[in-house]
Design a protein around this nucleic acid. Sequence first.
DNA 1: TACCGTAAAGGACATTTGTCCGATGAGAAA
DNA 2: TTTCTCATCGGACAAATGTCCTTTACGGTA
Lengths: 190, 190
Amino acid sequence: MIRTNKELFNYITRLVKSGSDSLFSEHSFAPAEQILIEGKKVFSVYIMKSGIVKCYLTTDTGSTFIQEFFGEGEIFGEIELMDDSSGYCTIEAIDEVKVYKIQKNDFLDLLEQDKKFNRLFIEALILKLRYKATRHSYNQSHTIEDKLRRLKVKFPDLDQVLSKQDTADYLGITLRALNRTIKGLSEGKG
Amino acid sequence: MIRTNKELFNYITRLVKSGSDSLFSEHSFAPAEQILIEGKKVFSVYIMKSGIVKCYLTTDTGSTFIQEFFGEGEIFGEIELMDDSSGYCTIEAIDEVKVYKIQKNDFLDLLEQDKKFNRLFIEALILKLRYKATRHSYNQSHTIEDKLRRLKVKFPDLDQVLSKQDTADYLGITLRALNRTIKGLSEGKG
DNA sequence: TACCGTAAAGGACATTTGTCCGATGAGAAA
DNA sequence: TTTCTCATCGGACAAATGTCCTTTACGGTA
């Protein structure tokens, strides 16, 4: 749901605080502000310092599909690192967001020079792969009710952070289906 | 659909052929043989030399979900690299398969010592992330008919390689739905 | 040959999910 | 206050998909 990466966060924080590394700059974004935009060139890699962003893309059918929500320590912009490809998704601040930002080339240099960082980056990619795979298969093999129940368990105070529409987009369903299922669950309990 | 990684394949092939590197061993598998099994410990990383494998997992609902099909140059076992976690999916040979195999620790050493290899590995992970993300969103926002039509275009001789059940599992639908849609498409044409 | 297991194909029906639309309520702005 | 917008909620119906079950065909094997 809201993905974080504690190890990477700690490492970057230390890098920045030690002052030995001026490659990272800090930036702030207001709620609803877009940090990366689907289809536009990406020149930097970003690591979340605080707040939550949603990572989504608009499909050719016009609907919105939310890949993930990123919190502390999650990295984005790295997919577009190796070639000069355009962003494959939009990153949008949900609340007040702070990020560390580093230029592509500086990032690549750092990857070569800093073995520990290199390792942490690879781990970050592997973590993403793992949770994407898990989520994809879960989404395709379970009913909306299952998905929603699971979400409630894993993230009870979801509705304090996300709009209903966001939640629906995340589950890959319509708002109508979400409401229907919520009602069904609450009646099942009471 | 059937993922490959030409660059990685070429690099590994050269490494092995040059004889300078005895870390890789070659192995063969017969059709339907399982190379990795979900839930069992993984001790090595594998790179496809020839043939096709399917990468799938069994969900708690009993259904099978196919992550991907891997061909020449694709890597697997790397998800389980960093910790001693168990395999998150099963890898099964579809036809006659040959792989390069390397022990986890040797793989990690190679990653540290060989910058070019390090870079290729990171690119491989990023490629996987990208196509997983794309596929996930596509699957959730399109009808079966769309998905099937797309598959036919991208991989016309699909049915020569895969059983109907495999195709259905890949699309995350039932066999019945697949047949229905195939019939609908052919009638729409004629 | 007869038997068995398995893949393929599809009929009939139930369930799930989407589409379309209207109602309500909170908050911003005039 | 009035008006407007936007998120939320749900009714009614249509469309998509799943479940269950039967048939057919083919290959292996006793």
